[in-house]
Simulated scan of single mutants.
Amino acid sequence: MDDTSARERLEKMLADLDRSIGVLQGDPAAVREYSAADAGSDLTDADRAQAMLTVATTQRRAVVDALKRLDEGSYGSCVDCGKPVPEGRLEARPEAARCVQCQGRRERRR
């Protein structure tokens, strides 16, 4: 993927993530009356929203880091081994920082 296409996709992803994060954070000032059943349901909804916010924030960080790598001229190189990240991987995940092998090793360590 060329740098221009990568930048466009990453900037669109960043804008979408920022919009999603804003929606997920919502307005805590809105107060409603709850029945006991509603409160339990809202707790589940709040947990789900928090999980989605965590994922979106992590994804946003990866996109910002990819844009920095573009600016530095290191985009498309694995941050661990320095080998090229396969084109197909960058097409699927433009924010990818690692080649498939290094990403696999990283995930197995978790």
Rank of each mutant, 00 (worst) to 15 (best):
T4I: 11
Q103E: 02
E72V: 08
C81N: 06
D45A: 14
G22M: 09
D2I: 14
V85T: 09
T57R: 15
A62R: 11
A15C: 09
R7H: 09
R32A: 14
R60F: 00
A29K: 10
V63K: 04
K68Q: 07
P86A: 03
C81G: 06
V100G: 05
Y75N: 01
P84E: 03
V63Q: 03
L14G: 04
A97L: 09
D16Y: 05
R109K: 13
L67G: 14
Q59Y: 03
R69M: 10
A97Y: 01
P94T: 10
L14R: 12
C78W: 07
Y75K: 08
T58A: 04
A56P: 05
R93I: 12
S35M: 02
L14Q: 13
R93E: 08
L17E: 11
I21M: 15
A30H: 14
L43F: 14
L67M: 12
Q50M: 12
A62N: 09
A15P: 07
A66F: 01
Q103H: 08
T4A: 09
D47C: 13
A96D: 06
C78G: 13
D27P: 13
L67R: 09
E72T: 09
S20I: 14
E91K: 13
G104F: 11
A6P: 04
A36W: 07
V79N: 03
V64R: 07
P86E: 00
D42S: 04
R61K: 11
S5Q: 05
D71I: 00
A51Y: 07
D71N: 11
R89C: 03
E11C: 08
S41Y: 05
E11S: 12
V64N: 01
E11R: 10
S74Q: 04
G26N: 06
E91R: 08
G22D: 07
G104S: 09
Q59H: 05
T4F: 07
V23H: 08
D18Y: 12
R19W: 05
C99Q: 02
S41H: 13
M13I: 15
C78R: 04
E72P: 06
C78F: 06
A46T: 13
E72R: 15
E91S: 05
A15T: 02
L90W: 00
L70Q: 02
T4E: 06
Q50D: 07
A66R: 04
D65H: 02
Q101G: 10
V55C: 03
A36R: 15
V31C: 01
R89P: 08
A29H: 07
V23G: 02
D2T: 11
A62H: 08
D3R: 10
T58H: 05
D16I: 13
